[in-house]
């Protein structure tokens, strides 16, 4: 079939790399002139489209386990497979397949045993069992995104990443998002590269933590190398360490953090003279 694609050099290169790998981004250019297009070797445009579509479709391996499924198993598999990377909840599966419970459970087990489907944790509703075809990576909605692992927020990992980001910002004094991402890439501490969105998420979290502050470049002094008006980040405290927020006047006395302040009156059961928090505070 490919031999006939002798229309131009480009098509020749297609043949050389063979269609079955990642060539979605290629565009097939047909002959420029009318003569070329109508030359005996040329192919009609629809055929080219068909060839590309065929090449994108995964050809099921003849020896794959999916072939040896019973009818019920096939129905169930198709339902799960049809949901692609979103997966499906067991109750929805039952509704859609309409299989009796016993048959359904057996089919589910077989499919799992054959490693055609797998269970995934859905962060939105952890109590509900979700399944997904093994062929797909679970979607972000299902896993919760990059900061989740096995359905749980990976706090240790996040803190580690945040600490490294804060360190980079501190070293650069004033850093832009691109600057931070670059510096992190160069350190090679993390195996995976962070996307722009992930970088933004981490920096935003540092800002919310009040460890880093957002400033606009004035183009003067420390901002000299940064375009005026560009958003930059600066560490609030030395080393961008955690837990150095200034304690306010209210927060430093018992009443400022008292859970019972709304019930406290000068002559009530809870009052300044009977207050246990005061007693504890003034226990020298």
């Amino acid at each position: 079939m490919f031999c006939r694609l002798k229309v131009c050099n480009f098509c020749n290169s297609l043949r050389a790399s063979s269609f079955s790998s990642a060539e979605q981004s290629f565009t097939v250019v047909l002959g420029e002139t009318k003569n070329e297009r109508e030359a005996p070797g040329a192919i009609p445009v629809y055929l080219v489209h068909w060839i590309i579509a065929m090449s994108k479709r995964k050809q099921p391996d003849s020896s794959s386990p999916a072939d040896s499924l019973s009818q019920n198993e096939r129905i169930l598999y198709n339902v799960i497979h049809g949901k692609q990377d979103m997966g499906i909840w067991t109750r929805d599966m039952k509704k859609e397949t309409n299989l009796p419970d016993k048959v359904f459970n057996a089919a589910l087990k077989t499919l799992q045993a054959k490693k055609l489907i797998q269970e995934v944790v859905n962060v939105q509703s952890k109590g509900r069992k979700h399944y997904i075809a093994t062929e797909f990576e679970p979607s972000k909605e299902l896993t919760g995104g990059a900061w989740y692992s096995e359905g749980k927020l990976d706090k240790d990992y996040i803190n580690l990443v945040k600490d490294q980001f804060a360190k980079m910002i501190y070293q650069q004094k004033v850093a832009t998002l691109e600057g931070i991402a670059d510096a992190i890439r160069k350190t090679k501490i993390f195996k995976t590269e962070f996307t722009k969105q992930q970088t933004e998420e981490i920096v935003r979290d540092l800002v919310l933590d009040n460890r880093v502050m957002e400033v606009k470049s004035t183009g003067m002094g420390e901002f000299a190398s940064i375009q005026i008006g560009k958003v930059c980040y600066k560490c609030k405290s030395k080393g961008g360490t955690r837990g150095e927020t200034k304690v306010g006047a209210m927060a430093s006395i018992p009443c400022g953090v008292c859970p019972r302040i709304s019930q406290c009156t000068p002559d009530g059961i809870i009052s300044p003279s009977t207050c246990v928090y005061f007693a504890k505070w003034l226990d020298f």
Partner: peptide, 19 residues
């Protein structure tokens, strides 16, 4: 917050009187 601050200031003063 301001109301709670007045409350806290009052409480400090009352506690001091109590002490």
């Amino acid at each position: 917050v301001l109301d709670e601050m007045f409350h806290a200031a009052l409480n400090l003063s009352l506690r001091l009187a109590y002490e």
